[in-house]
Each structure stands twice: as C-alpha cells, then as structure tokens.
Design a protein around this nucleic acid. Structure first.
Lengths: 119, 119
DNA sequence: TCTTGACTTGGAGTTTACTCGAAGCGCTAG
DNA sequence: CTAGCGCTTCGAGTAAACTCCAAGTCAAGA
C-alpha cells in the first residue's frame, strides 16, 4: 500500500504520515523500486493506537518515548506499562474535570431557558 | 484588587490577564489614579466560567464570540444558549471518545501484566 | 510519445495560546 | 530618600503540531 492509500485508510494526511515518520513516531517505511513508501496493514494497528493516545491529549514527545521503548523490544514492558498507567490516570482526571465543566455548562444553558413552568 | 492579587486568586498569570484584556476576553479594567488596573470580585466569576470553557477545549475565538454576545446584553440570550449547547454536545462526544480510548489503554496495560493467574 | 497525477526530499510557513522583554513610572519599607 | 517591587504599554519570541511549497522523479493511460 502506498502513502495515498494509507492516508485514506488511516485518516492521516500524507503530509502528516511523512512528518510522523520523520520524527520517529511511525517506523521508517520500506521504499519500492522507485523510492516510494510501501506499507502493509500492520501499520494501521499502530496508527490506531497512537490515535488513541492523541485523542486523550498525549503530547507527541511522550508518544515518542513509548514508541522508542516499543522499538527497544523485550525488557521494556514494565516501563511501557508505567507510562500508560500514568497517562491513563491523567486522562481520567481530565475526563472528570470535563464532566464537572459540563455540569456548569448545563446550569448556564438552563438559565437561558425562558422559565415557562412557574407552577 | 490589583493584578497581582487577581493573578493569585484566579490562577492566571498577570501576563495572561493583560493578554485576555487585550483581546477582549476580559472586560477592560478600570485604572486607579496611577494607571494600574483595579478589579472587583465579580471578575472572578467570569474567569471561572471561561476557565470551564477552556478546560473543555473551547478555542479563544469562540469564547470571544460568547463574550461579545454577553457584552451586547439583552436580546442575545438565545444565541448564547445555542453557542453553549453546541459546545456542550461537542464536549460530550469528546468525553465519550476519551472514555473509549481509556478502555483501549486499560487493555494494553493489562497485556503488560505478567499473567500470574492461569488457573 | 506525451501528459497526468502521485510520489520524493528538505525546509519554510501557519496557527493557537500564551510568555517574555524592554523601558519607564510610582508607591512603600527601611 | 532611595532601593526595589509591582505596575504600565507595545512588540517580539516560543512551543506544539502540523501544513505547505518547490523542484524533481516515475509509472501508467490516451
């Protein structure tokens, strides 16, 4: 699969895919005879995972640390787990803060309601 | 209250407070005899509210639109409500996406657990 | 054969939201 | 009375994460 196809399938722009490769967030893709990147489906799994990290607000620098541990292979599992646990805890706190904010928003929204039921 | 005190009480830096005033997110503060900003407590309520909007990822441009409607006074309630409702819906979708991501993270975290209970 | 469109690289530009610096003025504690 | 802190304005600088551009290559279809 070439970069255009991967772009469509992953939802990332071709620009972004090259950028991610450049900074090391995506593994260096093999090139075909004419120098174009050639991907197999397995990269989609990784892109989906880093997409989850991104959705939850992890900075690229942290994703890179995870990616490097992963690339270092066996022996790094504990570190990888610790990294994810710390992140998950931050995410849960963040979700709680957003939910609290929604409560405030809901009150404000209700306050704009013409109070039609006074009985 | 001067800017230093407000900074401590609001959690925003003095720089940020001036920046917010400059762009119109905070109302133009009255100055005392020597030209220094003088605040009363009511501004804290507004700062708290825009803090909620910020927590939920609203861009400053959108907060500005809300702030302007608010400044325009009566007659804009419907627009303000609509703006907040649209935002709240986005926030709820966002929270759901984060929660789904946490589920994925939890699975990944569990997969790093040395599987000690096999029975 | 010619053209079209996707691809390559390196580097520059963009957006958002701050964040800081410079130069200067005024209140207050020692 | 003077040192120093906190304030003023305006403008420049920063960080993150893309996003785009220029110049060139390559393969496939009319």
């Amino acid at each position: 699969m070439k970069i255009g196809k991967l772009s469509k399938r992953s939802g990332l722009s071709a620009h972004t895919i090259r950028y991610y490769e450049r900074i090391g967030l995506l593994p260096y893709a093999g090139r075909d005879a004419s120098g174009q990147r050639d991907y197999d489906d397995s990269v989609l799994v990784w892109i989906d995972f880093i997409g989850r990290l991104k959705t939850t607000g992890m900075p690229i620098a942290d994703m890179l640390r995870y990616a490097r541990l992963r690339a270092d292979g066996p022996g790094t599992e504990r570190d990888r787990q610790a990294l994810l646990v710390a992140h998950r805890d931050r995410v849960m706190a963040d979700i709680a803060a957003r939910q609290a904010a929604v409560t405030v928003l809901d009150k404000k929204i209700a306050s704009y309601e013409p109070n039609q039921s006074k009985d």
